[in-house]
Design a protein around this nucleic acid. Structure first.
Lengths: 231, 231
DNA sequence: TAATCCTGTAATCAATAGGTTACGTTCGTG
DNA sequence: CACGAACGTAACCTATTGATTACAGGATTA
């Protein structure tokens, strides 16, 4: 969804309001899918996996609160309620059933859009929505963002320098990095001649990551040049 | 039952409404701190590190939108707006400045409480996307919404800071958090260098949560980097 | 095959970072 | 205003990390 348009499923039985929502939302960058009943809405939400649901409480077939509960059984996606019912008890029920916001008709398009922005802001903050910087080759898995390394299903602990070194290799996986480049990046520009540091830490990494450190499968030496992470 | 009550900072200059909020919120399980001006409210939010801010837009000294922006410079905590202004433009400005919800006066206490529950639900949403807000690993169970911690079938009492620290780790379970990140979030932006605080409280958490505090299974140290809650 | 260069590994030691205890102060509650 | 809980601070001790030295293996070449 990062560079695509956000998608929304509108569940609303009244055709004029549906048209109002369709034009308003699509001219503001949404891809809009529509449903005119609760049953249809639940199906649509399941198929489209939208970034947002806009739901009218007063549907002909199912009670809106039931729709909320059904969706919440399998997803935490944002749900914004539109309703003609302004009674407080109705709001409380919908919100406690799992809705994220509640607008009473009549409402302005500007406010609705502002509240969709709030809902999407919340939703985007959840970590598993964000891409992970995970790298895999063979039975070696590295997550640069969460900062862990797995060999098989075993977690491996690395010291800060070891991790920086591996991190640089991962970010240039497949390419050969010269001693000079690595030393400059990991130890800083004042240590570009201390190539024995590099050998020692490379050895430590192999001890921790390679099945047979004497026959490395991932951390390869390019003699006279540098090192390379095999992909 | 609950480990400790959630805290809220109420920023409102009108004494009758302030009293209404104080009694309403505290009888429903909140610890309430009050401020009668924007300036004071920002300070209070920084000191108390509440779970929620309730903010009146019509303050005598600072514009409410400025208060939102100032808080958002260093925290993503939920902010619910109360306002006499029902104009759509006012709502849009506040929501886009970073507010999470907007209620127009007059409003009912029931609706306000329902909307606080929504805000806290968003704020506490764990990476697992657990709808109940409960987190489990090994024999450690944490419920961020109801605020209790169990080790085995034994309830454990935590102090406010201890709970905030654990809460942050739970919300980022699996990830390494740097000293800096934790200090900023738990103690506030002015304590980012006081890393010995962190060590002491981490030690206290281990005493309470780990079977063998010298060999932690959950609260892991990433030496030279920070800490991590193992999943 | 001897010399040389590049590479890998082990062991040591100092510096830094982390863990724990104890104690004084503050703050909220009754 | 007295009590206890929670917090901040200092001091001390332990563990981890990183730098460094020394040495061993292996390949290339004269």
């Amino acid at each position: 969804m990062a560079n695509l348009k956000p998608t929304v499923v509108v569940i609303e039985d009244d055709p004029p309001i549906r048209r109002f929502l369709r034009t308003g939302l699509s001219t503001h960058g949404f891809t809009v899918y529509e449903a005119d009943s609760g049953r249809q809405g639940i199906i649509e939400a399941g198929i489209r996996k939208p970034d947002l649901i806009i739901l009218d409480l007063g549907l002909p077939d199912v009670d809106g609160v039931e729709v909320i509960k059904t969706v919440r059984e399998w997803s935490a996606m944002p749900i914004i309620i539109l309703s003609a019912r302004s009674a407080e008890q109705s709001k409380i029920e919908a919100l406690d059933a799992g809705a994220d916001d509640y607008l009473t008709k009549p409402f302005g398009l500007g406010e609705l859009l502002a509240r969709t922005r709030v809902a999407l802001r919340h939703w985007l903050r959840t970590p598993e929505q964000n891409p992970t910087g995970e790298f895999t080759t063979g039975n070696l898995r590295v997550d640069l963002i969460n900062r862990w390394v797995h060999v098989g299903d075993q977690e491996v602990h690395l010291t800060p320098i070891q991790f920086r070194l591996l991190s640089m290799l991962v970010q240039n996986a497949g390419k050969v990095l010269t001693h000079h480049q690595i030393l400059k990046d990991v130890w800083g520009p004042s240590h570009t001649e201390s190539s024995h540091y590099l050998r020692i830490y490379m050895s430590q990494l192999r001890q921790k990551l390679e099945e047979d450190p004497t026959q490395p499968k991932y951390l390869l030496t390019e003699s006279g040049v540098g090192y390379r992470l095999k992909v």
